[in-house]
């Protein structure tokens, strides 16, 4: 399992330059202007982009035959899926940390801006929804089609996260309870996705 995580890490790090260039360019704009809209966008882009970086390597693995080879190694199929989800959470954490650091500096320089909790809850929510949708669909239709699956996952995830947040706004007036409900929903969704992907992959023929 450790070997799988290391492979996922090395595989993802190959794409990170492109994602970091985009993220750092937006970070510079946010830090210079202190614009609240730019700051909000930066949080969403950073968290989502870095976690998406983890799934981009799935396509590379399919092209390079690695996804076939790894089944022949002394690892269980469960470990392969677990490593994919853990790598996703790792890059989500890196993205969140980076977004938090830039947001803190912006707040120090330009004063208190946006509602930081909502921003991060929505950013992490969208990102977890993307992962939760991507993995089972990609393994169902084939990881070689992961680019199309990724685009669909991002679009559906944004719609779903905004929709759920709006519904919660209607029924729950307390902010903290609303955020707790939102966080619980997307964690459950991600966990459910993991179980589904395990089932799909258990009988997957490559």
């Amino acid at each position: 399992m450790k070997g799988l995580l290391i492979n996922n890490f090395y595989s993802s790090i190959g794409n990170i330059k492109l994602f970091l260039t985009i993220v750092l360019a937006v970070a510079a704009i946010v830090l210079v202007t202190g614009n609240p809209t730019a700051q909000e966008l930066f949080v969403y882009i950073t968290i989502t982009a870095l976690s998406i970086n983890a799934v981009v390597s799935s396509r590379k693995d399919a092209i390079s035959n690695w996804n076939k080879f790894e089944i022949t190694m002394p690892v269980r199929r469960t470990d392969i899926i677990k490593s994919k989800y853990l790598s996703y959470i790792f890059w989500l954490g890196v993205g969140t940390g980076l977004a938090l650091a830039v947001t803190m500096v912006t707040m120090l320089v330009h004063g208190i801006g946006n509602d930081i909790y909502s921003m991060f809850a929505l950013g992490i929510g969208i990102s977890l929804f993307v992962g939760a949708l991507f993995f089972p669909i990609a393994y169902l239709v084939g990881t070689d089609k992961s680019e199309t699956v990724l685009i669909i996952s991002v679009l559906v995830a944004i719609t779903l996260a905004v929709l759920i947040l709006n519904v919660l706004n209607q029924f729950i007036s307390y902010f903290i309870v609303r955020m707790a409900a939102f966080i619980t929903i997307y964690i459950l969704f991600f966990a459910f996705s993991y179980v589904i992907t395990l089932r799909i992959y258990a009988k997957k023929e490559l």
Binding site: G3, N7, D61, S64, N65, F69, T72
Partner: peptide
């Protein structure tokens, strides 16, 4: 599977890795 070596036609490993990095992967797998 520690005792079974497998080779498929074409590539078998992630393209982004080097043999040195591959060693880290397999050291922690086999």
């Amino acid at each position: 599977r520690n005792e079974i070596g497998v080779v498929f036609d074409g590539n078998n490993f992630s393209d982004a890795l080097s043999p040195e990095k591959l060693n880290h992967v397999f050291k922690n797998t086999y």
